[in-house]
Simulated scan of single mutants.
Amino acid sequence: MAHRIAFLGFVALAVCASLSLAAEPASLQDFCVADASGNTLMNGMACKNPAMVQASDFAFSGLHIPGNTSDAMGFRVTLVSMTQIPGLNTLRISLVRVDYAPWGIVPLHTHPRAIEILTVIEGSLEVGFVTSNPGNRHITKILKKGDVFVFPVGLIHYQRNIGYGNAVAIAALSSQNPGVITIANTVFGSKPDISTDLLAKAFQVDKSAVWQLQAKF
């Protein structure tokens, strides 16, 4: 019994260690301001000399400015990540402002490296995500001003303004570089194209439907 408990304890430690390694590395100093001039390729960015760090490395102005939502989807994201605030390097967090035109949508997408927590500042949004296989459960909710919703890491999700006026949301993401994969653009707009035969069979549609979608992206 003692050997079994020891073995289970070892397994638990191994699992915890693997999870910690899978996450973004934590900073081992007060901060690691990104050095954009560095030429070294690494997971993240090299640190600026702490003696050269300024308050501007930790600040960003402009989140109060509405984004231009005149595109076909009717939304605009203003990103505040490591690129905009070098001081976010190694801190595992970023921020976005999302502006929505009336009935504008943020189309189906995922963030491969981040959990997203969204707060509605103005307007009403329909939001939702789909769980992984085999369940593929669609979890959706209508949010109003002040409501908060969480999108788990890696799951396909969306937002839609369901009002006749503009809507605004602020979202935090658990990565300094969360990434975004827009499903339609990725599948039908890849360079070079994914084989039409493959897509037609995968989506169980005629090839002409695939050609039409690829032409749009």
Rank of each mutant, 00 (worst) to 15 (best):
H3Q: 14
R4L: 14
I5H: 11
I5G: 04
F7I: 11
F7A: 07
F7C: 04
F10S: 14
V15E: 04
V15G: 05
A17W: 04
A17E: 09
A17I: 08
L19W: 06
L21H: 13
A22W: 01
A22G: 05
A22F: 07
P25E: 09
A26H: 13
A26F: 08
S27N: 12
L28I: 05
L28D: 14
Q29C: 07
D30N: 12
D35W: 05
D35V: 04
G38W: 04
L41F: 11
L41W: 10
L41M: 11
N43A: 10
G44Q: 00
G44W: 01
A46Q: 13
C47K: 02
P50G: 06
A51R: 12
A51E: 13
Q54P: 00
A55N: 09
D57K: 12
F58H: 01
F60W: 13
G62W: 03
L63H: 05
I65R: 13
P66L: 06
N68R: 04
D71I: 07
D71Q: 11
D71N: 15
A72L: 13
M73E: 11
M73K: 14
M73F: 15
G74Y: 07
V77P: 01
V77D: 00
L79G: 03
S81T: 12
M82L: 09
T83C: 00
G87I: 03
G87P: 00
L88N: 01
N89K: 02
T90P: 00
T90I: 02
V96G: 02
V98Q: 02
V98N: 02
V98T: 15
D99I: 05
Y100H: 12
I105P: 01
L108W: 14
H109N: 07
H109Q: 07
T110N: 09
A114K: 06
I115W: 13
E116G: 13
E116A: 14
L118G: 02
L118A: 15
L118K: 07
V120G: 01
V120L: 08
G123D: 00
G123V: 01
V127P: 00
V127K: 05
V127H: 03
G128W: 10
N133Y: 10
N133R: 13
R137V: 12
H138Q: 11
H138I: 14
H138A: 10
K141P: 01
I142W: 05
L143D: 04
K144C: 09
K145M: 11
V148Y: 03
P152S: 02
G154Q: 04
Y158A: 11
Q159K: 08
R160T: 07
N161R: 03
I162W: 04
G163H: 05
N166D: 05
N166T: 14
N166G: 12
A167M: 03
I170K: 03
L173H: 06
S175H: 02
S175K: 06
N177D: 05
P178A: 05
V180P: 01
V180G: 04
I183Q: 08
I183V: 14
I183R: 09
N185M: 10
T186R: 11
T186V: 06
S190R: 09
S190M: 09
D193L: 11
I194L: 15
D197S: 13
L198F: 14
A200C: 08
A200Q: 08
K207P: 02
S208D: 14
A215H: 15
A215W: 08
A215Q: 15
K216N: 10
